[in-house]
Design a protein around this nucleic acid. Structure first.
Lengths: 166, 166
DNA sequence: TATTGTTATACTCTATAACTATA
DNA sequence: TATAGTTATAGAGTATAACAATA
């Protein structure tokens, strides 16, 4: 049915693109099951990590435009997962925080991420998975990938798969 | 460096998503320099591999809808890279082929892919690159990925995520 | 009646820029 | 004047479904 993979060039970069897309799409499918888009999942994760941050700061960390953040927070707020509170020191901006329910959903999200990872790497042995993780980490570091979202990974590493900006 | 103990989730799936997106976006940037979107590049590759195929067959292999293929071929044809010829056995469908120029652009595309891969994997040693290629191939095989396609972003599911190029 | 390709339409997502309220 | 947030609008990209030609 499909051609024999072969010609000259290796296809590692190609595979990386495809598998990355597959991983993103599978993760999106899982978050959808709990009523969240990947973007919303990313927002919950960032607010959980930095309670009290403003929409502007959130937009910056997402690499998004402020106007885009508005309906995102609107939706999460309408579902009771996030709350806006006017800053007492500068009434122009909000301080964003997770509600109790929001924190609970974030925990669900972390479980989802673990299951997602386990299933994705199921075809590999434990050693192979570790190897893959190391190689990818090396690539990410060398490419100065936006690990901004991952620095500080000391204790609360949320492991959300997708950000707003792709 | 790496948090060893702890139920802290690994981040391999996350890295895979991020690096895949990075690889796709870098490749898109390169194809754009020769006036092609990633989708168009994929079309050229498929036609080059299977000369004479119909738009319907192309759509199927792209995981796209036939109506989407029309403007894609229109554009490539207008630039003299692809030609439509009515099938003599079934006049309903076209047989798609690359023109001389189209074949030339396809060769450019292959060079671009090689450079792209080399730069992406530059941070790794040759052995590490080979290792990574093997691990990714194993994952792709286990997940029944179609290795002929160059997917830009999540596909695999009718209602998935947004595509990435701009 | 079924199928290939086409067109027309609508929907989704996103950015841009104008607007308000605070500073 | 500058900044946080909001709203309105437009643009790109895509799918859906009706359509014409051919089988």
């Amino acid at each position: 049915m499909d051609s024999p993979a072969q010609p000259g060039p290796k296809r590692t970069a190609f595979l990386l693109s495809q598998l990355g897309a597959l991983a993103s799409s599978r993760f999106a499918e899982r978050t959808r099951e709990i009523g969240l888009t990947p973007s919303e999942a990313g927002v919950l994760r960032l607010i959980g990590r930095t309670p009290g941050l403003s929409q502007r700061a959130l937009a910056d960390r997402l690499g998004a435009v402020p106007s885009r953040v508005v309906p995102l927070i609107d939706s999460l707020q309408a579902r009771g997962l996030v709350e806006r509170e006017r800053s007492s020191t500068d009434r122009r901006n909000y301080e964003l925080r997770l509600t109790i329910e929001g924190a609970q959903v974030l925990r669900q999200l972390r479980e989802i991420a673990e299951v997602h990872e386990a299933e994705l790497l199921a075809p590999l042995t434990g050693e192979q998975s570790a190897q893959l993780g190391n190689l990818l980490a090396r690539l990410a570091g060398a490419n100065a990938l936006d690990l901004d979202l991952h620095r500080d990974a000391g204790r609360e590493d949320p492991a959300t798969m997708t950000q707003l900006h792709r």
